[in-house]
């Protein structure tokens, strides 16, 4: 509960943050956003950074900007702002629905989208939503800006495609078409509130058939991953096919030999794998129900 001492650096801009990361690059340096993962880790001794660069004063990194084809969520935007954003609920509800499922009101008012995604906690809610949304992650580094597709971003537990010295600045969430639909459903841990299993779904449809599907899960694996066999089963499927959600969800663990389902105090891998199928089915049913309802979501 009493973290080791560290040097604290406050910055005013993303560029200043990059400079600061470079300047302290020979030491263990970390960025502080909402602090809801970092501070508990520092207090429990799991993280002992020598330098903490605080992004709290970088106003330019906050806020939601609605474009024609995508909505930009700047990195320091709090979960609550995303969960309450009517435009996002209308244009791609999988992200605000996942944001609304995080923690509690206090957590959502302080935790940030960029911090969440950059941390790649396997049980966080946003990574699966970003995969399903096919979001684009913007990074700024010493060599300038680059864009990383969400599909390439999450690599392992607490490991992303961000390089040392790089800062996640924003995430672009593409808008869905009028016949598309999305959903995020979650089985929360009764103790931590994190996802034992969370499943995000985006279905692109013509109102009758599924043209494309992106289904991703967090909580079950060492990082958020697409459930490709489920996606395969869905593509070309009819929205009227009542057995489709169960059939597709049943394939959630098809590749289970090729990756490890998490096994810990909170749930065995057997139970998690089962929950993955059940919650994938629930997510698919919810998304299919929402097709053609005009807003893509109940929210």
């Amino acid at each position: 509960m009493y973290p080791a001492s560290f040097e604290y650096v406050a910055v005013d801009s993303a560029e200043e943050a990059i400079d600061s990361l470079a300047e302290h690059g020979d030491r263990e340096v970390t960025l502080l956003a909402g602090g809801h993962s970092l501070l508990p880790m520092m207090k429990s001794g799991l993280a002992s950074p020598e330098v903490v660069v605080d992004l709290g004063g970088v106003d330019a990194l906050s806020g939601i900007e609605r474009g024609d084809d995508a909505t930009r969520i700047n990195a320091m935007t709090e979960y609550a702002a995303v969960a309450d954003d009517e435009g996002l609920w209308s244009d791609n509800p999988v992200v605000p629905e996942a944001a609304a499922a995080i923690g509690d009101v206090q957590v959502r008012n302080v935790g940030t989208v960029g911090g969440n995604v950059a941390h790649s906690d396997p049980a966080a809610d946003l990574p699966a939503a970003m995969l399903a949304a096919d979001a684009t992650i913007h990074a700024l580094g010493p060599d300038g800006e680059r864009e990383i597709p969400a599909a390439d971003f999450f690599q392992a537990m607490f490991t992303t495609a961000l390089a040392d010295g790089e800062l996640l600045t924003a995430i672009d969430v593409p808008h869905l078409g009028s016949d598309d639909a999305a959903a995020y459903v979650k089985k929360a841990s009764p103790s931590s509130g994190y996802a034992l299993v969370g499943v995000a779904v985006v279905l692109e449809t013509d109102g009758e058939e599924i043209a494309d599907a992106r289904v991703a899960a967090n909580g079950a694996f060492d990082h958020a991953m697409a459930l490709e066999p489920v996606e395969e089963e869905l593509v070309g499927g009819s929205l009227d096919d009542e057995s489709l959600p169960e059939r597709a969800a049943g394939r959630a663990t098809d590749d289970v030999e090729s990756y490890l389902v998490l096994d810990d105090e909170q749930a065995s891998s057997e139970y998690r794998a089962h929950l993955l199928e059940v919650y994938a089915e629930r997510a698919l049913e919810t998304a299919i129900d929402r097709v053609g309802d005009g807003s893509n979501a109940d929210g």
Binding site: P190, S191, Q266
Partner: peptide
């Protein structure tokens, strides 16, 4: 179950 993270 040494913290509220595990103890429900």
């Amino acid at each position: 179950s040494g913290s509220m993270n595990e103890y429900a």
